[in-house]
């Protein structure tokens, strides 16, 4: 075999580009029982799926905010160090505050990336609720619309049985209407989410990532 005639050059190891994913999870009292148990199981699936993908786990960064009341459970960090919190249901549904807090966190994270010279992909924000906001949400909805339009992030909302889909529809961008979760298929949802994020986190310039259809867990 032909040998490379020069000594192998020393190459750079840049940090992996990051794909931030923010989960906004409803933990209000109506989620108590099977719903919160299935959501917890779904998060465990999410961790396992991402961990099985050697590149995605270095690139996908997760943050979790729950609402009922608003609490930051995980700041943005790569999936290889992600430990899903055990969520408990209690309280009201301050969705507006959770969205605003989450988008603040996302903006701060992007500033970190820029300062560290780390390249990144468009963020995903994933809201899951079984109710409707009990606080002021119109300001948060405006930020969602502006952010989607300016391609600052992709905002997805998923309504669990009993969710106020009309208000969710107003929070979401007109181009990306909320989905209804079939039953309590959280595990299928998180499988889909990890698969989609893995695709995005490996995409190269000029690649439009085709999202798999949310089959098996959602209906529009």
């Amino acid at each position: 075999m032909y040998q490379v005639p020069f000594g192998y050059p020393d190459l750079v190891s840049n940090p992996e580009p990051r794909c931030p994913c923010l989960l906004l999870l409803d933990t209000s009292s109506s989620m108590a029982g099977d719903a919160i148990a299935e959501l917890n199981a779904g998060l465990q699936t999410f961790k396992n799926e991402l961990e099985a993908d050697s590149l995605a786990k270095q690139r996908v960064e997760l943050a979790i905010i729950t609402f009922g009341p608003v609490q930051v459970h995980a700041e943005f960090r790569t999936a290889d160090g992600f430990e899903p919190p055990l969520l408990h249901a209690s309280g009201a549904t301050p969705m507006g505050e959770a969205i605003s807090r989450g988008l603040d966190m996302l903006e701060a994270r992007k500033t970190d990336y820029k300062q560290a010279g780390v390249s990144y992909f468009r963020a995903w924000v994933f809201l899951i609720t079984d109710g409707g906001p009990t606080d002021e949400w119109r300001m948060a909805a405006r930020r969602v619309h502006v952010g989607e339009k300016g391609k600052a992030f992709n905002f997805f909302a998923v309504g669990v049985n009993g969710a106020d889909m009309r208000t969710l529809g107003q929070i979401c961008s007109p181009d990306r209407q909320p989905l209804c979760l079939n039953g309590l298929h959280f595990r299928e949802l998180f499988k889909w989410l990890s698969g989609s994020l893995s695709g995005v986190a490996k995409s190269r310039p000029g690649e439009l990532v085709a999202l798999p259809a949310p089959s098996g867990w959602a209906s529009v």
Binding site: L11, V12, N14, P15, A116, G117, V118, S119
Partner: peptide, 10 residues
């Protein structure tokens, strides 16, 4: 690109 250019220092 990522093997030759140092992104943080450009």
């Amino acid at each position: 690109e990522r093997l030759i250019l140092h992104e943080a220092t450009r």
